[in-house]
Design a protein around this nucleic acid. Structure first.
Lengths: 106, 106
DNA sequence: CAGTAATTTAAGTTGACACTTACGTAAGCC
DNA sequence: GGCTTACGTAAGTGTCAACTTAAATTACTG
């Protein structure tokens, strides 16, 4: 999850993910969508692959990249559980607040 | 969302979030849970606040921090939609694959 | 008002990381 | 076997961010 977060925190890598989310693409095709050098994209792809967010398939001299949604599951679960926990706390706090108001009025 | 991702990418900040997820805590209390200096924690709290993941309430010279779940919504929605999109692509790819197999067999 | 406690702000250091150019590698093509 | 195409890897550079210590700020307290 650590790796996924670090990978997603970089805007260019999110852009790459958006690209390969629609269809499998070669490294070169991906690179042509950006104004940085190909090695830079290659390095980003390595990071994304390391985080399990992308998978690579070789075909001759080409390397085809596509999204790997399972790579997001752990992070999604973390966020969901965290979000729920936070909401419960908010609700409890509101109720305590309400009790205090009532108690104070008496 | 950018800010939330950058904030979450740092392990110490996630740990801080876990702490204040259960109950409101002062900056000092939070800092005492880690082996870095208080200024370091203060800086992390500034980042978390900037990302909307935490809210600050002042009480005298104390500052009480608590989690702010709404700060996660945008990121959660992004991940969810992205995840769904990815799964659909996987399913489509599997179906195409299946059709190709059948076609090849005939 | 002087003193202290809780915390942030300032300034400087170090390490990580996104980038660059140059080179290496592996698969098709004449 | 050389040549080209499509990549990755190596090595170096600049920027940013997480940390440190020292100083400033803000509110309480006798």
């Amino acid at each position: 999850m650590e790796a996924a977060l670090k990978a997603l925190a970089e805007p260019r890598r999110r852009a790459i993910l958006e690209l390969v989310a629609d269809s499998e693409m070669t490294a070169g095709d991906i690179a042509s969508h950006f104004d940085v050098s190909r090695p830079a994209i290659s390095q980003h792809l390595t990071v994304l692959k390391g985080a399990g967010l992308v998978k690579e398939r070789r075909n001759g001299t080409r390397r085809l990249y596509s999204v790997r949604p399972e790579g997001l599951s752990e992070l999604r679960e973390f966020l969901d559980s965290f979000w729920r926990k936070g909401l419960i706390r908010l609700k409890d706090a509101a109720e305590r607040e309400e009790r205090n108001k009532r108690g104070g009025r008496r």
